[in-house]
């Protein structure tokens, strides 16, 4: 008996010092632990490699879900989608996985597929109904070709966010654009007026002065018999007149591009700051 106890003590000591069963850093469990730590550090590529290695031994749903999330973070939407889809039969994670596919489509910018699938089987789930509706509505907002009713679109968002969002959407629906044709025509009638219409008042005044004065000096030079100067000023007048018409149309286009850019940037920043109204991950 004494010998048996002593033998057990010796084996225990050996295990304790790691001589008999040294720690295997590459065992599936250790790879999972390491992968989870990398995932927390946002080192998604390395985390995905560790998760993939673990899944070869044990196809655990939570690990596959995190693998899909890692791919989503790395903007590898196809792989994210595939991994989410393989969890559709999971008892505990099927709803999260379905929502994961919709998120992949959203971040990929595939708004048509998103809108076709989000609210129907097999992607729809009661648990995620509100986030699904929100993400679909955001897809309408971010898609500049889509037509929608702003009041209806904002109704799915939290009540305190609705007024600001509605104001942005209404501005986007009716942006205060300037017509390049109107700008060009105005400048053709009165040099510089098109520029003023496009908001460039100083440029408009300069254009009016430059064109007017050069025309005046052209006429004055011809009257004085100085043809060289007359033609010089005529050339300058034509240059200013034509340039001002073209410049006015361009100014209106620039103005419109600025308006569009600011409205879209404002909306994107708004949604990004609110994390697209996505629910928090469960784990």
């Amino acid at each position: 008996m004494k010998l048996r106890y002593l033998s057990l003590i010796i084996i225990y000591l050996l295990i304790l010092t790691g001589k008999v069963f040294p720690q295997d850093f590459f065992s599936p469990e250790n790879r999972l632990k390491f992968g989870s730590s990398l995932f927390e550090q946002k080192d998604y590529l390395r985390a995905a490699i560790e998760f993939e290695a673990y899944l070869k031994y044990n196809d655990k749903d939570t690990v596959r879900y995190n693998l899909a999330r890692a791919y989503l973070e790395m903007e590898k939407y196809g792989q994210a989608e595939d991994n989410f889809k393989s969890l559709f039969s999971s008892l505990t994670l099927q709803n999260d996985a379905k929502f994961g596919v919709i998120k992949s489509l959203f971040f990929k910018g595939d708004y048509n597929s998103l809108r076709t699938n989000a609210l129907v089987s097999p992607y729809f789930s009661q648990e995620y109904e509100i986030p699904l509706r929100r993400i679909v509505n955001i897809s309408y907002i971010l898609d500049d070709k889509a037509k929608y009713d702003p009041a209806k679109i904002v109704s799915v968002f939290p009540a305190d966010k609705q007024p600001a969002l509605l104001e942005m959407l209404e501005q986007r629906m009716n942006p205060p654009y300037k017509s390049p044709l109107t700008a060009a025509l105005l400048s053709a009638v009165i040099p510089g007026l098109g520029k003023a219409y496009a908001g460039e008042y100083t440029d408009g005044l300069i254009a009016l002065a430059a064109t007017g004065l050069s025309i005046y000096f052209a006429a004055d030079s011809f009257n004085a018999g100085n043809n060289f100067k007359g033609w010089l000023f005529t050339g300058l007048s034509a240059f200013f007149y034509g340039g001002n018409i073209y410049g006015s149309a361009a100014a209106a286009q620039n103005y419109n591009a600025g308006i569009k850019f600011n409205l879209e940037k404002g909306l994107k920043l708004y949604f990004s700051a609110n994390n697209y109204f996505l629910p928090k991950e469960k784990f």
């Binding site: 050996l14 001589k19 040294p22 295997d24």
Partner: peptide
């Protein structure tokens, strides 16, 4: 036990 520890060390190589 000590002999075993010493004996195993070279077989097992360095620590993990």
């Amino acid at each position: 036990a000590a002999a075993l520890l010493i004996f195993f060390s070279p077989l097992r190589g360095q620590n993990p």
